[in-house]
């Protein structure tokens, strides 16, 4: 499981609150920090929500425009676009083995499987299957 170091720096870096805010902004096109805080109904303070909005803006995931004293935030990326990019990043890391330390894969991604070994294993499985079928009959 711990074959290589987890390369945590290349993981898409979005926290739970940030993801919830994005979800909210996909449902309602523009919101101020105060409105977002009110809609989230979470234990997070208004300042925490404001900081999360600021972080999302700096990550280029939100747009904002100033109207009066308040910033109005809107989503810059679509849900499908972000989902695809998140999953893509995860699969990339799964394939190079950098996520192996943090999860249990059904089968490790194997780049250099020897054809002879594969054929031998296939043959053994076939033999076992035939034995089972014969015993069953």
């Amino acid at each position: 499981m711990f074959k290589s170091k987890a390369n945590s720096n290349t993981l898409p870096n979005l926290g739970e609150l940030e993801l919830r805010i994005l979800n909210l902004l996909w449902e309602e096109p523009t919101l101020t920090a105060k409105e977002a805080h009110g809609r989230l109904a979470s234990h997070s303070s208004a300042n925490t929500v404001q900081s999360a909005l600021e972080r999302l803006y700096r990550k280029s995931l939100l747009d904002r425009s100033k109207q009066g004293h308040a910033f109005y935030y809107s989503a810059k990326v679509q849900r499908a676009e972000l989902t695809s990019s998140l999953i893509g990043a995860v699969i990339d890391q799964l394939q190079v083995g950098s996520l192996e330390p943090v999860l249990s894969s059904f089968v490790d991604f194997a780049a250099e499987m020897d054809d002879d070994t594969l054929s031998r294993l296939e043959h053994m499985i076939q033999e076992r299957r035939q034995q089972r079928t014969q015993n069953h009959d």
């Binding site: 987890a6 945590s8 993981l11 898409p12 870096n13 979005l14 926290g15 739970e16 993801l19 979800n23 972000l82 989902t83 998140l86 999953i87 995860v90 996520l99 943090v102 999860l103």
Partner: peptide, 13 residues
Amino acid sequence: LPAHRLAQQLKFA
């Protein structure tokens, strides 16, 4: 931490 963050993101995606 990486596993915790990854789980949050995959739950979302």
